[in-house]
Amino acid sequence: MIQENSSKIVCVMPAELEVITRMQPYHMGLAIGELKKQFVPSMAGADLFVRSGKRNEFYIIVNENAEKLVLYGRDIMGESIVEASDTLGENELVILLNSRLEAIGIGRTRFAGRSILRKGKVTVTTLNDAGYYLREEG
C-alpha cells in the first residue's frame, strides 16, 4: 500500500503521474526498493536491475540446491556459492542469482572477500526471495 512519507522508491510511467497527483492509489508502478540508511532493493527491483544488465559488483551466484532453499527463505552456506564479486565487504547487501543469472533473492553478507566461500558456515543471510510472493499471497 502506498502511504504518505513512505520511503518506498517506485518506478512509474509518466502517464500515471496525472492520476497519482489527483487520487490516492493503493498501488502504483513497481516498487523497486526502499531508501532507509541505504537503498534496499525489493525483489521486483532486483529483477529489474539484473534484466537491465545492472548487476554491478554486489552479487553472488548460488548452486541449484541453494537456489531451492533460498526460495523458501533459507540462508546461504559458503559452499553453495559458485561465484561472488571480489569486492564484497562484510554486512553488504547483495543480489542473489541462480546459475541462469536470474534474481532469486536479496541477501546480506556475513563475511568479507573470499571468506564468503567458507565451507560449513552460513555466510549470507537471505533478506528477501522470490518465494515471498507465493508465501505472502497465500
Binding site: 500500500m1 518506478c11 512509474v12 510511467m13 502517464a15 500515471e16 492520476v19 497519482i20 487520487m23 492509489p25 493503493y26 498501488h27 502504483m28 508502478g29 513497481l30 516498487a31 525489493s42 525483489m43 521486483a44 529483477d47 529489474l48 534484466r51 510472493y133 505472502e136 499471497e137
Partner: peptide, 24 residues
C-alpha cells in the same frame, strides 16, 4: 476490496508490471 487489491499488487510485482495503478 483491500484483500483482493493486495493479492493483485503481488501479481503485478511478480509479473514485472510498472504501468499500472490500483485504486480502491
Amino acid at each position: 476490496n483491500e484483500k483482493r487489491a493486495r493479492a493483485m499488487s503481488f501479481n503485478l510485482a511478480r509479473c514485472g508490471v510498472y504501468n499500472t495503478c490500483i485504486l480502491r
